[in-house]
């Protein structure tokens, strides 16, 4: 299990993994710790952290419990981050694989489409998509997936382009394996490690995107999210700075943790490269 050993030897990755585990735990426990809706007003507004027992992080402008908001927000951030990445992979991996494997016309057409989506400024497109589809978890996930699949397609295509002429793939072709076997058994498994690394970084980017959308008021109106908390605290920054600092630190830590884990995975999956660094 040398992969695991290499991964845990990376101190940053280990720290990232611990932070990430804590955030996941918080998200999972949110409905147990704070069974009430996080939107409910529970105390007078603008309680500073620690001012009243039972409200360790204080209350916001509407008197809602910041700790409850934070816990429920963790759930949304992680959900959107992971699901949108999975959707993006589901679009990008097959497109990239087909383009790289078949080449020629197929590649031309698929890559023009990919380039097109890469040219469009992705945050602006996400805004437009969510605005037009009306904000909801579904539309946010879809919008983030739509703007984040092109790098996956390009990566997978690149890997396929270089792997399809590998001698072991040609050997498998010669012994009579069909396209399906060649793609699924010979090539795809060997593209997985860079895709996994990219995916872990994409989750981080998706969380940032989701929080940015909610900050602009494009969050799902039924769910509490970190970006919404910061957006709502913007106008009261002078009176209650902690209301924007707390969720901001939460986003920062989560995204940082995912990046650290991604780098750790990269080092552990590509040991030759790691040694160069």
């Amino acid at each position: 299990m040398s992969f695991f050993r290499r991964f845990v030897q990376n101190r940053g990755a280990l720290v990232g993994l611990v932070i990430l585990a804590l955030v996941v735990l918080l998200a999972l426990l949110a409905p147990l710790l704070y069974p009430e809706s996080p939107w409910r007003m529970v105390q007078r507004p603008f309680l500073a952290p620690g001012e009243l027992p039972g409200f360790p992080l204080g209350t916001d402008t509407m008197g809602r419990d910041v700790a409850a908001e934070l816990a429920h927000g963790a759930w949304v951030s992680l959900l959107v981050g992971f699901v949108s990445t999975l959707v993006a992979l589901a679009i990008g991996v097959p497109l990239g694989a087909l383009a790289g494997y078949f080449g020629g016309r197929t590649d031309d057409v698929l890559m023009r489409i990919t380039e097109f989506f890469q040219t469009i400024p992705n945050f602006a497109l996400a805004i437009v998509l969510v605005a037009i589809m009306e904000p909801s978890i579904g539309s946010i996930v879809l919008a983030i997936a739509v703007v984040s699949w092109p790098p996956v397609a390009r990566l997978v295509r690149g890997e396929f382009l270089s792997l399809k002429h590998r001698e072991y793939v040609e050997a498998a072709r010669l012994v009579g394996q069909g396209h399906r076997d060649l793609i699924l058994k010979q090539i795809l498994p060997n593209t997985l490690s860079p895709v996994i690394v990219l995916a872990s970084l994409m989750v981080a980017t998706a969380i940032l995107l989701e929080s940015s959308l909610s900050f602009l008021g494009l969050g799902d109106p039924d769910t509490m999210s970190w970006g919404y908390m910061i957006g709502a605290a913007r106008t009261v920054m002078r009176q209650a700075w902690w209301l924007s600092v707390i969720p901001g630190v939460a986003i920062l830590l989560t995204v940082l943790a995912l990046n650290l884990v991604g780098e750790g995975l990269d080092d552990a999956l590509n040991p030759q490269l790691a040694r160069q660094r």
Binding site: S211, F215, G227, I230, G248, I251, L252, V255
Partner: peptide
């Protein structure tokens, strides 16, 4: 900075 939300 890579991990920090721009608006924040």
């Amino acid at each position: 900075f890579y991990a920090t939300p721009l608006y924040w």
